[in-house]
């Protein structure tokens, strides 16, 4: 059972939230992630898709966890080291993105895992980029429409429920299930939002393939902004961002605590975000 819990920890740490399985004291996790979106459509404030000039978004991010007090306190840090927004043929901005610091505590450990997490968003990105001095007005408009951060401090509280099962004689396949729900308290004129995630991971018990976890997930944000308020920004960093996004991921253990993952997700229903396939690759290390 302990092996199963450790294995679950390996894969759950690869996502953006520590979640239900908090980390033991003295244990660490670090991942480096690259993700890309390229699209020519946008989810408008009324959830319809509209055509836009080709748009690309590249992000290089990191995520770290440190177990400080077993079960009771895991600290997390997540940041975008580099973000590039590009409107092909018009202009691009690049620079540092935003940062999130968090803490998770385990409320229940048996028979299911239940943890409470609080993260704080720090606006280290640039919410209002500008073109160099002397640039024309259109260049300034393009620059301002491509922020690398949301420009606001926010707090998110989230409850995460986790359960691992399988690996039994009659059902040797191993699974974990995570269901999360939370409230995202935002400032600077941004509307608050309800956030959630549901995820099922599966690992087959046979030689070699047992190195891989196959993950299916749904991720969602439901902003309380009206359609009028949601019209401000179309890069996924503006007010009113809402989406339901199914995704798949495969995580592979390479050697000891080192692993890599490949993930795809795309929104089914959304507003104020680019409507494209989000491709993500990550390398991770836990020790």
């Amino acid at each position: 059972m302990r092996a199963a819990v450790v294995a679950v920890l390996v894969v759950l740490s690869g996502v953006a939230h520590a979640g239900a399985w908090t980390r033991d004291a003295g244990h660490h996790y670090l991942s480096l992630t690259y993700q890309r979106i390229a699209t020519s459509t946008l989810f408008a404030p009324d959830f319809s898709k509209v055509a836009i000039p080709p748009y690309e978004q590249h992000q290089l991010g990191f995520y770290g966890e440190v177990g400080i007090v077993s079960r009771w306190l895991t600290a997390t840090v997540e940041g975008t080291l580099y973000r590039k927004n590009r409107l092909v043929g018009q202009g691009a901005t690049d620079g540092l993105g935003d940062l999130r610091l968090g803490a998770w505590t385990g409320l229940v450990t048996q028979p299911v895992r239940l943890a409470l997490g609080v993260t704080v968003g720090i606006p280290t990105g640039d919410a209002r980029p500008s073109a160099p001095a002397g640039a024309d007005e259109e260049a300034q408009l393009i620059a301002r429409s491509l922020p690398t951060g949301d420009g606001e401090v926010d707090v998110e509280g989230r409850l995460a429920l986790g359960y691992s099962f399988g690996r039994a004689r009659r059902w040797p396949v191993e699974h974990y299930l995570v269901v999360e729900a939370g409230y995202w308290l935002r400032t600077a004129g941004f509307a608050d939002a309800f956030v959630w995630r549901a995820e099922l991971g599966t690992r087959l018990p046979w030689r070699f393939v047992e190195r891989f976890w196959w993950i299916w997930r749904f991720t969602g944000v439901e902003s309380f902004a009206s359609s009028t308020e949601a019209a401000r920004n179309a890069t996924g960093l503006g007010n009113g961002v809402t989406f339901i996004a199914p995704g798949v991921e495969v995580y592979g253990r390479i050697w000891r605590g080192v692993g890599a993952s490949f993930a795809l997700d795309s929104a089914l229903r959304a507003r104020s975000v680019p409507a494209g396939l989000n491709v993500r690759v990550a390398v991770s290390w836990q020790w």
Partner: peptide, 30 residues
């Protein structure tokens, strides 16, 4: 533990770099 410190140093560096604005590249042709 030193690596853990490095992780959080990354965060501190990110905060320190927050004063740096994004760079803009104009892709419009003539």
């Amino acid at each position: 533990m030193r690596v853990a410190h490095a992780v959080f140093a990354l965060g501190v560096l990110a905060v320190a770099a927050a004063g740096c604005g994004a760079r803009f590249v104009d892709e419009r042709g003539p």
